[in-house]
Design a protein around this nucleic acid. Sequence first.
DNA 1: ATCAATGCAAATAATTTGCAAAAAG
DNA 2: CTTTTTGCAAATTATTTGCATTGAT
Lengths: 157, 157
Amino acid sequence: MPVERCLAKRKFIDFLRRRKLRVTAQRRAIIDSAFETEEHFTAEQLLLWSRRRDASVSRATVYRTLPLLTASGLVREMDLGRDHKFYDPNYSDHPNHSHIICLDCNRIVEFDSEDIKKLARRMSRKLGFSLRTHRLQIVGSCDLLKRLGVCARQKPS
Amino acid sequence: MPVERCLAKRKFIDFLRRRKLRVTAQRRAIIDSAFETEEHFTAEQLLLWSRRRDASVSRATVYRTLPLLTASGLVREMDLGRDHKFYDPNYSDHPNHSHIICLDCNRIVEFDSEDIKKLARRMSRKLGFSLRTHRLQIVGSCDLLKRLGVCARQKPS
DNA sequence: ATCAATGCAAATAATTTGCAAAAAG
DNA sequence: CTTTTTGCAAATTATTTGCATTGAT
């Protein structure tokens, strides 16, 4: 496991302690699972991974821990307009506000752009608001690969 | 009622006829309600308005008509990361891909920007995709008005 | 007459919650 | 010991669907 993930785990445990919340076995299993992956995950996936580490983890505990993870700032909740939310455990390392969702491979590519940030800020000002957050969602397709038949990076779901 | 809205209604009825779908009393009530407003609405709001015109309109029919409205291109479905979707009946007049959601007044301001479109296209290309759609969501606050106490444009929900 | 469209109530599906029992500090 | 956390099952909430009946063409 990369160093940053260990660090993230430690940071989250500190976050719990600071708030006088308890570091239970179930929370450990969930934290370990969340920061083990480099990928986005759903609540259901997190439940599965956590149960591999500790079979006693319940769906309710996962759903109760997720808001703590996002409140700590170490995990970012992403609503991509699907029926379930995604969670990004890399957020504190690489804060991304833009996603490309590929229609072909169903992949989510994240990036951030200073230009978009500036543009968003400028537009907000112009319309009488001050920017708190912004997110750009792009739906696209890997047309080059589609011509070859299937997208090489194809993923299920 | 402004001319464009009448036009939109007519266009939608044409859309139904072209597909050999029937123009029922319930659908009329729903269409009239949808194109009467200048505002975004939810499925629940549309049901309420439609029932004012025709008490027989059921929630199921509203939910079955909404996909037709969006398929026609006259209404745009907006997922703003809340628990319910919003629908924009002005979409064909003013196609907007960007929203500012105000934390203070809970208002949704729409706009579109050629710059953002270009930027999105450029970023997609750079990352190996071709853009299909894009949307920019900005969460902001009207800080000027907040200093005065409450936002003058404040809305419930 | 046809066959699409309706209302109703039951079904989904993701997430939330009440509660008594278990465990952390 | 006190208070938080847990698992379970039931509740919520927006939306969808099956089905017998109604209604547009």
